[in-house]
């Protein structure tokens, strides 16, 4: 089993990566993971805030 990364996936906005697991014998792809490589935590930032503040903050997602 070998693992290959296609990361970054460019020409899109954001940090996207793909992880492929390939069987050595058959060269078949046995597992694929599409990963978002960046985390900011908007849910946490918004938690228990005044709703008017959400207008300004959520624009920046």
């Amino acid at each position: 089993m070998a693992t290959y990364h296609l990361d970054p996936v460019n020409r899109i906005e954001g940090h996207l990566g793909v992880e492929l697991t390939v069987d050595d014998g058959t060269s078949a792809v046995t597992d694929v993971r599409v990963k978002s490589m960046m985390y900011r935590g908007f849910e946490n930032i918004l938690y228990k805030r005044h709703q008017k503040e959400a207008i300004t903050i959520v624009q920046r997602i």
Binding site: H5, L6, D7, P8, V9, N10, R11, I12, H15
Partner: peptide, 13 residues
Amino acid sequence: MNVIMGPAGELAA
């Protein structure tokens, strides 16, 4: 500049 550049994957990184 990952949004504009042509290469992806290891070529870019």
